[in-house]
């Protein structure tokens, strides 16, 4: 297969296994490109991409922008804080106004789940979901799987543990879809209040004891506690969360095997993982960031090749 089965990247849910394989294969080539002395290819000279960020972001936004520029696309940036959205413009109006300026592709982050899917039905452009509320964050899940593949050879059959705020995490949901699709085993771990009730229906197992869960896994993906999405208290104090679900060097060293530690960022050092774990050799957090650019280049390139001229 040399073409994606979808015209938008709205979520991992809509992808096939072959799509992921193709994205990874293409990302391998782009990873070579971004390590060259001149890290740029002219493929997307005639493509204009709008980055619409209705929610805060550093890594994802920079990563997308860099990926677009490395492919020679023209880029326009938009953040909700300094725009007419504050004056009451609707999402479709905002996007259609931007598309009227001849934009081919939209990368969007939005606080509402399903915003990307909604938009794809109403506007004529290729949409990439860069995170929609607590729903999906497909490029993050792709780069996480890509990093596991790079570190451990393949994703299939690996035991991956996702720790933390599963309920509010789009990274967790996209990762579960992506990992299951590639044949990995997935376990989630966190306070009972932060694990959705029917999570087992996605084919994952639940463990509330961090040590037991860590003993089981090959890879641990430590998520951030998303205080900004919690209207009520889900656990007594941050200190208590850290005591039960924080990963520190003593725990890591006490395990009977070397596990790979991942984190999607931003890290709250001392909460979900301690500094010495984040900076240890077992952590591949910065590899994840580097792979993010290659993965996003691959996704943009493959979607752009499907845009009709």
């Amino acid at each position: 297969m040399s073409e994606l089965s979808v015209n938008h990247l709205l979520g991992i849910k809509y992808l096939k296994k072959e799509d992921i394989d193709l994205i990874f294969k293409t990302a391998d080539h782009f990873k070579e490109v971004i390590n060259r002395p001149i890290k740029k290819v002219p493929s997307l000279r005639d493509i204009t991409i709008a980055n619409l960020f209705f929610e805060n972001s550093t890594r994802t936004r920079l990563s997308f922008e860099l990926a677009e520029k490395r492919l020679s696309a023209d880029v326009i940036n938009f953040s909700a804080a300094s725009s007419s959205v504050k004056k009451g413009e609707t999402l479709i109006d905002t996007v259609n106004n931007i598309l009227a300026m001849k934009v081919d592709m939209v990368v969007m982050r939005h606080p509402n789940p399903g915003a990307g899917i909604f938009l794809s039905k109403h506007v004529d452009a290729s949409i990439i979901n860069a995170g929609d509320g607590t729903h999906e964050h497909p490029t993050q899940a792709l780069l996480d799987s890509y990093s596991i593949r790079e570190k451990l050879g393949e994703v299939k059959g690996k035991k991956v543990l996702i720790v933390g705020d599963i309920k509010h995490s789009r990274v967790a949901l996209s990762n579960i879809f992506a990992l299951k699709l590639q044949g990995a085993e997935v376990k989630v771990c966190g306070p009972k209040t932060l694990i959705p009730k029917y999570i087992e229906s996605l084919g994952v197992t639940v463990e509330t004891n961090l040590i037991k869960a860590l003993e089981w896994c090959d890879v641990a993906n430590m998520l951030r506690v998303q205080n900004e999405r919690m209207e009520i208290s889900y656990f007594p104090t941050t200190r208590e969360y850290t005591q039960q679900f924080g990963l520190n060097k003593e725990i890591l060293d006490s395990l009977n095997k070397q596990i790979v530690v991942m984190h999607p960022g931003p890290i709250n050092r001392g909460v979900e993982i301690t500094s010495d774990v984040a900076d240890s050799k077992q952590a591949i957090i910065l590899d994840q960031v580097q792979n993010g650019v290659a993965i996003r280049m691959a996704v943009i390139y493959l979607l752009a090749s499907k845009i009709n001229r």
Partner: peptide, 23 residues
Amino acid sequence: LDITFYRDDFRRSTKPLEANKTK
């Protein structure tokens, strides 16, 4: 040298272009 990303027929040819390895 792989030239896929430098070709001038991106989005013009009917079949998608597949890249090879550059080393």
